[in-house]
Design a protein around this nucleic acid. Structure first.
Lengths: 269, 269
DNA sequence: CAAATAGTGTCTCTAAGACAATATCAC
DNA sequence: GTGATATTGTCTTAGAGACACTATTTG
């Protein structure tokens, strides 16, 4: 009978085959189209950060930023590091949306992906080490015919259009099967769909939406964020009632907008 | 410039250090104490399945069932296989509750854990391969003083009592820091807390609660499941109104219970 | 003043909680 | 009949949606 010391010194993890592990991040932001009339509020759209792969496999395809877990870091730390390296952006709190572990999901071999959803406020991102190019894609994700979902990502002339099927409702988190990857790399179309579902689920409960805005904001801005993510529209009076629970007033006001100044709020708590 | 074929044949994942990956499962069930009076409804309690570790490290400590991911299986497949091997039980749909990746979390080395919550209906479990013993522990999990949480697991004379702090609200999923592990193995106290939070979150929305019951059930049974998990109590009339949305009638009734027979329902959809 | 957004008040309808009353079985 | 659970009805209250109205700024 050996004690714990002896056991551990005779223990060899390397005797068993191990997978490689990556973290992939679906980073979202809200983008506003430049204003048309001097006092008209600009339209806002939900955008997702993709990089164009500079290396095989899926070279030149668009993919989520991400990379291999290194010894000594947590998976969240890995996700933050990778998105910083590849895009120069600093995302807000990460939210785990799934582990993608199909043995054949990566042609390089046995590679698991931990998928995270995140939010970036800064509009300025740029390609880094591994990524030839990083760009924001406008996101559309709506049910199609017969319970299928269509995910459309648009950046200028580039349109990626994937088709997914909702998997037998895992309780809570949504999982999707890829019917058409829309030339996104790996199984990233399914990751994006899961991340977007998680984001929408949060946004409906006033979670995550503050990450899209600066420290202080107007209630109209907050409303636009929620409406843009959920693709809905509610009356301002009713939105204010619901939002009151989650925000607190500041003494500041906006100015110079061609209309009545708006009080600035901050997140409560 | 090489093509994808050439790239892949020259690619060696083994050049980089890789972690071991485990799946750990927090499997819950509802247990009813044996009836006192012949017509009194038995009390029901939430229970969690733990195994007593038969090997180092944490030998003889209680731990969640789980084990190493093997090549060719998904992480969910691994979770199902391990719980079957160690306890002989067949859990319902798994729900991912977190990835635990602190580099120092396992004294054996670099080992990540994918944590799942699950539900088992069968009351009969038994120790298997790796586990000396598998037992159901009654679960208590309530806020303590100053925002700390106390997790108490009870099986006969054995009482495991852990103290946890809620981590800066990740949006959505709850994460906990261990203040006192209550002599649970590894970081399993934190995993259990996260799994229980996820379960409660689901149960409040009528998710997961059907997994605790057979195909058909009475509304009172369904109510008891929800009340037991959430540790609340609601009036039957009001519960029925809310539940109606999620169930459909059958033509069957209970009988022989010493009181009015109850119609049996099944999950809708 | 015109155009646009900011903000308030209130009506209605629905969902949730409380409570009362009736129904039906096994002993 | 008694003791227990099953089931329905309804009163009250809180919240969500709709809508009308007032307030304030810049060109």
């Amino acid at each position: 009978m050996q004690n714990e010391q002896e056991f551990l010194s005779n223990y060899h993890l390397e005797d068993y085959e191990r997978p490689s592990v990556t973290a992939d991040v679906a980073a979202f932001t809200i983008r506003r189209t430049s204003e048309e009339s001097y006092r008209k509020e600009p339209e806002s759209r939900l955008a997702l950060l993709l990089i164009r792969r500079g290396a095989h496999p899926f070279k030149d395809c668009w993919a989520l930023p991400g990379g291999f877990l290194q010894k000594g870091e947590t998976i969240e730390g890995c996700a933050l590091r990778e998105i910083r390296e590849e895009t120069g952006a600093a995302p807000a709190a990460l939210r785990l949306v799934g582990i993608f572990s199909e043995p054949e999901r990566d042609p390089r071999g046995w590679i698991l992906s931990a998928a995270f959803a995140s939010v970036i406020t800064e509009g300025t991102v740029q390609g880094g080490d591994d990524a030839a190019e990083a760009q924001w894609f406008d996101v559309q994700f709506e049910p199609d015919s017969d319970g299928l979902f269509r995910l459309t990502l648009t950046h200028g002339e580039t349109v990626l259009s994937a088709v997914l099927a909702e998997q037998s409702a895992q309780h809570g988190g949504c999982a999707f099967l890829i019917r058409d990857s829309g030339s996104l790399a790996f199984d990233h179309a399914a990751i994006i769909a899961a991340a977007l579902s998680a984001l929408r689920n949060e946004a409906g409960k006033f979670g995550a939406i503050f990450d899209f805005l600066p420290e202080t904001f107007t209630l109209t801005q907050l409303q636009q964020v929620q409406e843009t993510i959920l693709n809905i529209s509610v009356l301002p009076a009713n939105f204010r009632r619901k939002a009151a629970e989650y925000v607190e007033e500041t003494e500041e006001y906006t100015s110079g907008a061609g209309h009545r100044p708006a009080k600035l709020f901050r997140k409560k708590g």
